[in-house]
Design a protein around this nucleic acid. Sequence first.
DNA 1: GTGAAAGCGCTAACAG
DNA 2: CTGTTAGCGCTTTCAC
Lengths: 338, 338
Amino acid sequence: MPGPARDTRSSVKLSDVAAAAGVAPMTVSRVINTPDRVSPHTAARVRAAIEKLGYVPNMVAGGLSSRRSRMVAAIVPTIAHPMFAEMVQHFTDTMRGAGYQVMLSLSGYGDFGELDLVRGLLARRPDAMLVTGADHAAPLRQMLTEAGIPVVEIWDVSPQPVDMLVGLDHVQAGAAVGAFFLAKGIREFAAFAASDARAQARRRGFTDAVRQAGGTVLADPVLPAPSTITAGRQAMGALAAALTCRTGLFCSSDMLAFGAITEARMRGIDVPSQLSVCGFGNFELGATNEPPFTTVSVEGAEIGRTAAGFLLRRLSGAPARDDDRVHVPFRIVERAST
Amino acid sequence: MPGPARDTRSSVKLSDVAAAAGVAPMTVSRVINTPDRVSPHTAARVRAAIEKLGYVPNMVAGGLSSRRSRMVAAIVPTIAHPMFAEMVQHFTDTMRGAGYQVMLSLSGYGDFGELDLVRGLLARRPDAMLVTGADHAAPLRQMLTEAGIPVVEIWDVSPQPVDMLVGLDHVQAGAAVGAFFLAKGIREFAAFAASDARAQARRRGFTDAVRQAGGTVLADPVLPAPSTITAGRQAMGALAAALTCRTGLFCSSDMLAFGAITEARMRGIDVPSQLSVCGFGNFELGATNEPPFTTVSVEGAEIGRTAAGFLLRRLSGAPARDDDRVHVPFRIVERAST
DNA sequence: GTGAAAGCGCTAACAG
DNA sequence: CTGTTAGCGCTTTCAC
């Protein structure tokens, strides 16, 4: 038989409340989960007992029985990035508003052991799952599929999403920045991009676009992920000597752009007449800088809310639909740096 | 009897693996949890079956039975603040390294509904809990105590911690900044502080210290939490006219300090000769700024790791000790702004 | 080293 | 509207 409790923690359980209130355990369960199916009078008595005993329901037991954990798992690479922090914040807020707890996991950059991470999360039987990225290895895709729960992939596009998708087309975003510079008559370019796949996709979209239009790419160094201000300053230091005529610089993150602009100021390179700079992410940093700088704005909050909305719709029983795969829009916010 | 599964998700269970491997369910459980108590040969057979069937253990069931969830709950106000982001990152990393998943909850500033939040988390029967702040209302304290699990409070000090503590003395940090300015011969002061309790404690420590030394506090506006660069710029705009002689400005966050310094530059106020600025948090922003600015450094990473270490020690069965209540050190990092 | 039996605390389904 | 019954999938304990 099962051993004694490992400790005496909160041993008050549903049946204790039931006994105290003089009702069946099931009635207590109903008061907690479906109060409108209990007479107001009984409910009041039960609630008094709950209060008096300090009863905290055991959702582990409830989850085992009902096969619903009221919990969703979310995997993001980091929360140090304002975009993800904001997205996570809104995702968790929306989910909690609907009665779901979010179990957040930080995967770091590099995808090492993402399969184990997902397995560990699925072992907790979440009702749904959010994952960052849409380019998963086959075993991971399979595990996600076989879990039989709604899955939403965010922050990336894919021709073959596992299930739902709230993605951003990073290549297209980079290309848009290229077109933006080209429209200003700029013909020399540089790109600073972090090493992660999404940053590189933006960089590639950018360099491909400007080269196709006959532009020259002076440099496109790969910088460590996650991006830092320091990396931007250093990359700018290295680029400075190569600048001859007006150059369009695209940075895969506002952190890099901020560093680049700071370094340019120190070196007497004028922004925007000698160096035209566009960042990515629309962090507060860029808007309040002097000069405020141009950036690509992506609504992290909207990604979080949309992803949550998709999962909640499915969790409420709605079937899969065509429109639960969306690309989130981005827009170039033009400021004084270009 | 219980209904059919709500869905067909991953119906492969421990007993299926056992059947496939030709052993008892208990043996499969041992292979997963205590592999050294199973013969290598049997273990290999079981592992093959697990692999073949794609079995993912159900920790909900396991948790109900063993009364251990291998999960810890953590509550922080926000992850938008680099200090908390870093702390959370290291806390979760350390915990995961020891086999614990972290369930992160963001409480926002304002403490509204923190009791419900904690109740909801305890319903999941975490093995331990981290909470931010140490000044909790009585019902919350009681709930935490009665949960019977190790609790660590961080980021604040308290004469009466619920259990363990990894705290920072914010009043003392503010006072140290005051002393730092005073030692430079500064006699006029200002403080920009966010409205949250910790920021106000730092502000109070600062203003009390400088007033006690005969200094004058020109202004100490309360700004919205969380702190933004914009708020710092605006507060600086309002303060500018009042500056006469060299003034020491303490900001409760590097965000505010950054905004203040940017605004000062725009207004032709020289830093540090006319305005001496010290921030708080040691964000990358301050180190890379021109001029780099002085700040109070607190190791978020260390708080996270220490808190995790405390919980893990307790979880491994160690009793409460005197030294599981520590104050984390802070230090003033002097840079060009002072 | 391995197995069998007995629940962990809760809820689905059915009965009244 | 309320109660009864039978598990959810796993681990504890004890026996071999």
